[in-house]
């Protein structure tokens, strides 16, 4: 028999890594959109919008991520049950796929943290730059496109990068809902082979590689953002 450090679980773990990456990327797209929306709400002229935005970020940042994930898991099934009973009149129980409620929960969480990071970027735009652009006769739209967005991007990027790194690690929470991502695959492998330490070490090493790789990508992004503006 040949030496096999993964005891035949290598392929499964690779699949898990794939699902972890897909989950993180889907969440990034949805969460960034949500975060931008909430950041705009928080900067709005209308007090009602500001209150909603502030309440959102306070609740998300004040509660554990796991609690929100659990709410999405148990809540989605109940909510769907109520909806289907309301519309069809029948007693239907449909389990929402874990990937769907997992991505929604993580996006809601990521959106709350990203909103604060984006708001920080918005606040750091110097007034003088906008006035200078106006004096040059630029339209509000081109000011947004040419001045505001690059500046917000540059100033929010370090904080958003940290949000992204913790999102990668947070995807491991979905293993508690039995979604077969990296952490869950390693737990299954550990239970099957009784090699707990080895497989959790494998999980740790892969997460470390993922975060390390992303740190490098973020450094690259940050230096290009600085050069452009």
């Amino acid at each position: 028999m040949s030496f096999s450090p993964f005891m035949g679980w290598g392929g499964q773990i690779a699949l898990g890594v794939g699902l972890t990456v897909v989950t993180a990327l889907l969440t990034l797209v949805l969460g960034l959109g949500l975060g931008l929306f909430v950041a705009i709400l928080k900067q709005s002229k209308w007090p009602a919008a500001r209150i909603i935005g502030d309440a959102y970020t306070t609740i998300i940042r004040g509660t554990p991520e796991l609690l929100i994930v659990l709410l999405a898991f148990f809540g989605s099934t109940i909510a769907l049950h109520r909806l289907t009973t309301l519309f069809t009149g029948r007693d239907l129980w449909i389990q929402v796929p874990v990937l769907v409620c997992g991505v929604i929960a993580l996006s809601v969480i990521f959106g709350g943290y990203a909103a604060e990071s984006i708001r920080g970027g918005m606040l750091s735009i110097p007034k003088g730059q906008i006035e200078a652009a106006e004096a040059f006769g630029l339209s509000p739209f081109s000011i947004l496109l040419v001045i505001k967005i690059p500046l917000i991007w540059q100033h929010a990027l370090p904080a958003l990068g940290n949000n992204w790194l913790s999102l990668i690690k947070s995807t491991s929470l979905l293993s508690l809902l039995s979604m077969e991502e990296l952490m869950r695959k390693c737990t299954l492998a550990a239970n099957d082979t009784a090699l707990y330490f080895r497989f959790y070490l494998v999980a740790a090493a892969i997460y470390l590689a993922l975060t390390g790789l992303n740190v490098m990508v973020l450094h690259k992004l940050e230096s290009t953002a600085r050069k452009k503006s």
């Binding site: 491991s172 999980a203 740790a204 470390l208 975060t211």
Partner: peptide, 10 residues
Amino acid sequence: GTPLLVQVFM
């Protein structure tokens, strides 16, 4: 660089 969950289980 690793999730707390992994550290706890480890």
